[in-house]
Design a protein around this nucleic acid. Sequence first.
DNA 1: CCTAAATATTTTATGTTTGTAATATTCGGT
DNA 2: ACCGAATATTACAAACATAAAATATTTAGG
Lengths: 163, 163
Amino acid sequence: MSVANRARERSLARPASKQRLRLWLRLLRSSRAIEACLRERLRAKFTITLPQFDVLATLARNAEGMTMTELSRRLMVSNGNVTGIIDRLASEKLVLRQAPASDRRSFIVRLTPRGMSQFSAIAKAHESWIDELLTEIGADEAEKIIERLDGLVRRARNEEARP
Amino acid sequence: MSVANRARERSLARPASKQRLRLWLRLLRSSRAIEACLRERLRAKFTITLPQFDVLATLARNAEGMTMTELSRRLMVSNGNVTGIIDRLASEKLVLRQAPASDRRSFIVRLTPRGMSQFSAIAKAHESWIDELLTEIGADEAEKIIERLDGLVRRARNEEARP
DNA sequence: CCTAAATATTTTATGTTTGTAATATTCGGT
DNA sequence: ACCGAATATTACAAACATAAAATATTTAGG
């Protein structure tokens, strides 16, 4: 980095850092607001929690099943946490654990037929709720924000992996 | 809304709704990623949780103190939840509950001097962490995203308040 | 080849955060 | 004085993180 760039960055450091802090607070608040709204509707209409729905959605995209660790990484949730969620979904017969022949340390978690049909019913409502909540945001605009957020996630993940 | 606009929206409904769904998933993932990163650092360097820090930060901006209900609304967190967080912070002598003469139902929660100094130490580190995580996003760009998110929160809040 | 250490996967244990529901107390208006 | 609304707490269940333990696999050394 050049001396000029360094100086320019230092002179801008104050306002930019404040703006970034504000952005982070909005990010947190908006995801909380949407989460609260979805959680309430999911509970009222389908008797399911948001994390449980998240798991169903993730499994639905992976018909061949996933291990517990893969699930926990995908959902950005701790390993021990997934156990409890899968336990509850399994007791509802929405998912099942299979022991793969190759590696007896792990389990493959899959949707049951009941889980699939349950998921597709919920997913339909879910998509329309999101469409309604984000209706002010157009497709092109969504794309721009998505790109920014992707860069952000990449950075946060790297920081996390290197403590 | 005009007939033409309605038709245009219907014809675009599919891709826009998919984009909005993607945006929501990114939103959730990025706030989770940042949260995980911050939580880890806060625990390691200051022995405090993220929600506890959130409470300290909110109280720091309101020197005159806040009631439990005001706190729960500001933080978008349930009423019963705030009780537990304040209990823990109070047991660490970082905050205290004052009974106002005017209304014996409520408590005014304030930072103690110890809470203030603790907070300012943590806040400094926090701001620099955020600045580092969001470094790719400029001040003007942050402002644009903030505006979009604000509209989004407004809508989600309205939906929530009218069940 | 065989055993021990290192590694990987999951569960269990403990504590915090979260929401919902139920409860007690207090305030304000009628 | 009474009734509905507001305020805070408590109880309970789910979600979450971390750490430790249990089990299975892989690898390294003899």
